[in-house]
Write a protein that binds this DNA or RNA. Structure first.
Length: 248
DNA sequence: CCCTGATTCGC
DNA sequence: GCGAATCAGG
């Protein structure tokens, strides 16, 4: 398998939309999770929360150095590696200070010999405060059953705004729901397709005669059950459930 | 154990 | 450039 234009595009899209490396690897097929991660890093698209050490620089140098086994028993946990290949990059001391605009710790020694007008050389700091320009472009969405707006491919899950504090009051049958099929009216013989959204005054269920063997009427079964296309033929990968059930 | 992403390094 | 091996953490 090679990284074709399309496969890279898929990788980039899924990676930036929050899919895990495993999911991406499985979706692309014929490739390992490590390959996905490695490619993602090489492409430069890395800014994703790592499960390992959120604040620290992930796996420090001593972590991945199995080549030179620290056979010396109680070696102090310092930097037992530096003996073999003195890389200037790895020699950088641990710096807890927040340094956002530093893609690479290239060479810290350079700055030491340039004290001239260093103070006036204010950092552009463009990347840090570089907020989004807030594009007011209208977003086209498809509407799903019940009227919810479907998430577009590549979109992150919208931020969930916490429900405002509300006072609990005794449930009162709404006039809007009079004559409609309510939750209590459901049984095995009537369609359970929801109309509207729970909590809305007119929320109810379809209530038609059920399609025998299904929880919905014939009409709504057409919405609920659709032919499963081969993975190859599905255009927008999955709708990115984002937190949804993992198929395994 | 499972999972995650990060990193290194031989190819 | 690629990705297996390995790591650290949840």
């Amino acid at each position: 398998m090679s990284w074709t234009e399309e496969r890279i595009a898929t990788l980039t899209r899924m990676w930036e939309s929050g899919s895990t490396a495993s999911q991406i690897a499985e979706d692309l097929g014929g490739i390992s999770r490590n390959a996905v991660i490695g490619k993602a890093h090489r492409l430069g698209l890395k800014p994703r929360p790592s499960p390992v050490k959120a604040g620290t620089a992930a796996a420090p140098a001593p972590a991945a150095a199995p080549a030179t086994k620290p056979k010396a028993a109680p070696a102090p946990p310092k930097k037992p590696v530096a003996a073999a290949a003195p890389k200037p990059e790895q020699a950088a001391p641990f710096d807890p200070a927040p340094t956002p605009p530093a893609p690479r710790p290239a060479s810290a020694a350079v700055r030491a010999s340039a004290p001239v007008a260093d103070d006036i050389d204010a950092e552009p700091a463009g990347e840090v405060a570089d907020a989004k320009p807030a594009a007011p472009a209208p977003v086209l969405r498809s509407v799903g059953p019940g009227g919810f707006l479907r998430q577009n491919p590549g979109e992150q899950a919208p931020p969930t705004t916490p429900a405002p504090p509300r006072r609990l009051v005794p449930a009162r049958p709404s006039d809007a729901v009079a004559g409609k099929t309510s939750l209590l009216d459901l049984n095995d013989r009537i369609c359970k397709w929801p109309i509207g959204h729970p909590g809305e005054p007119d929320f109810h269920f379809c209530g038609d005669k059920v399609n025998p063997g299904f929880p919905y009427c014939v009409d709504h079964c057409g919405h609920a059950y659709q032919a499963q296309l081969p993975r190859r033929d599905r255009r927008p990968p999955p709708p990115l459930p984002y937190g949804g059930p993992r198929v395994r």
